[in-house]
């Protein structure tokens, strides 16, 4: 399924995995999470690495009565529900039943749970699944804000090519092997990338030299040092 994958994740770095359907994105994620074992090769996780995982979706049977607050504290009663929800801008959802959430609300709640574990590595499987177009950019802004707050590494799998390009430090384009990797601007010009996704995709050329807060205001200026993104 997957071969010749060599990937290292650094703290504080957002790495996005893109690739066509069947490229092995989910397989790669499962390997990194320890949900399946590689046939050859090795996955090394720093001992005691705190993992936060946001699954692609959570389909709860409506017969199960469970509020968002209860879900956030499930197996981790010490979590402060209000803090966890305000982190993702979903304060008012605490008493809502999980089964009643919209797609976008569910993604926020899943993100809140992943972040509430104060992970050193946040792993997100298509975090905008089921989120309407307007909300997708907001989800990526949230992820970047979480990275800044928690100082964790972020690995995400995504389909939203142009949105991802804006909010990531490093892109890994895979199709059963690594096709190309590097900074978003480099990857979007890479022949291997263009071959996979065609030129329908307008490469996103946002100059990422500052950060936004939730309201879109510019926080402290910040520029990416290209040299720190090495394998």
């Amino acid at each position: 399924m997957l071969q010749d994958i060599n990937l290292a994740l650094q703290p504080g770095e957002i790495v996005t995995v893109i690739g066509p359907n069947g490229a092995g994105k989910t397989t790669l994620l499962r390997l990194l999470l320890g949900l399946s074992k590689p046939t050859t090769g090795k996955v090394w996780r720093r001992p005691g690495l705190g993992l936060g995982y946001m699954p692609q979706r959570l389909q709860i049977d409506p017969s199960m009565p469970m509020s968002v607050a209860r879900f956030l504290q499930l197996g981790q009663p010490q979590v402060d529900v209000r803090e966890a929800l305000s982190r993702v801008g979903a304060d008012r959802l605490a008493d809502t039943g999980l089964a009643e959430l919209s797609g976008g609300e569910m993604q926020r709640v899943l993100l809140a749970r992943a972040a509430s574990r104060k992970p050193q590595l946040l792993v997100l499987d298509e975090p905008t699944q089921g989120v309407d177009l307007g909300g997708q950019g907001e989800v990526y802004r949230l992820i970047a804000a979480l990275r800044d707050e928690l100082g964790c590494g972020v690995l995400l799998v995504s389909h939203d090519l142009h949105l991802v390009m804006a909010a990531t430090d490093k892109v890994l384009c895979i199709n059963q092997h690594i096709c190309c990797e590097g900074l978003p601007e480099q990857v979007s010009r890479d022949p291997a990338y263009l071959e996979l996704f065609g030129d329908k995709v307008v490469p996103y050329t946002h100059q990422h030299n500052h950060e936004h807060d939730f309201g879109g205001d510019i926080l402290h200026p910040h520029s990416h040092d290209q040299d720190e993104h090495k394998q």
Binding site: L33, G34, L35, Y53, P55, L58, F71, G75
Partner: peptide, 9 residues
């Protein structure tokens, strides 16, 4: 609720 999420956690 979610077997894989539980496993990761």
């Amino acid at each position: 609720l979610h077997e894989e999420l539980a496993a990761v956690e």
